[in-house]
Design a protein around this nucleic acid. Structure first.
Ligand code: MN
Ligand code: MN
Ligand code: ZN
Ligand code: ZN
Lengths: 142, 142
DNA sequence: AATTTATATTATAATCGTTCTAAACTGTTG
DNA sequence: CAACAGTTTAGAACGATTATAATATAAATT
């Protein structure tokens, strides 16, 4: 629930010029109560359908990647044929519903802390992500 | 460390004809002491470089997917730009070295059991996978 | 305010992993 | 062997993503 001038600052502070396109994308992504998951295509469709702005697909890719690099978005990899982005940038895990292709955030009370006992020597852990794939009972088990 | 006749049976029992190409791929994938991770491209290169067989890329894709469907391979999704396959079909987790792009199996003693407290109503868990991304200390933290 | 410079946007082409196609080939069965 | 279903193949098609390079805009400088 940030307003336009806050997005301008956010962008400026990140070394990104507050262009019309970036501000629109900020509005669509961050001017909400709840975080959500989206694909580039979702976002492009959302903007072209719900606003009369027309942002080039290349700009949407550039902006989403810039926001990811600045830490304003996380990329979630579920399958190799599509990339999901997440406006929830806190550490958290996911359920992935194989029937509906929907990604659902896990609350901390749903998945206990993952205990990593040994790590690769000389390496630092940069992230720990759990993906729980779920499907209806009648589905075939992996 | 299976031999050719065992692969013939394995394929026949799965309803797959034991063709020259499939047997070669079996040999490359399963005639080993240790399990490993590979991409389609790795496999294609391996076959074309180390054997004088020439298997069409379409056949390699077809066969790998057939083996996956039969449960002889697992697909591991790390990034959206490439698919990794795993000849280790037991439940296990992975370290992913972001410096080398290498995927490393976790032993059960390296990652404790993941405790899923609540599940999505009416859905069955089909898999639980932990991916621990690691990088050298000097790398930027996710 | 006008000029200059750096940065961003755009349409479109290119790339690349993967899947499709449809013709030729092979394994299996009778 | 003949017949058939299943398999392989080269190459085309596809689709998500990235590169290109011309145009436009924001910011900095005069
Ligand atoms: Mn990406
Ligand atoms: Mn696949
Ligand atoms: Zn999330
Ligand atoms: Zn593995």
């Amino acid at each position: 629930m940030l307003k336009n001038s806050e997005f301008v600052n956010k962008l400026r502070n990140s070394g990104l010029r507050p262009t019309k396109q970036r501000l629109k994308i900020c509005e669509v992504l961050f001017n909400r109560d709840k975080t959500f998951h989206f694909t580039i295509n979702d976002l492009a469709k959302n903007i072209s359908e719900n606003f009369n702005e027309k942002i080039s697909l290349a700009t949407i890719y550039n902006t989403v990647h810039a926001f990811k690099d600045k830490g304003y978005l996380k990329e979630i990899t579920i399958s190799s044929d599509k990339s999901y982005f997440d406006t929830n940038i806190t550490k958290h895990h996911h359920f992935y519903d194989e029937d509906t292709n929907l990604l659902i955030d896990c609350n901390d009370n749903e998945i206990g802390k993952v205990n990593i006992k040994n790590n690769i020597t000389g390496k630092k852990i940069s992230s720990v992500e759990v993906l729980v794939r779920v499907a209806s009972d009648t589905q075939n088990q992996n």
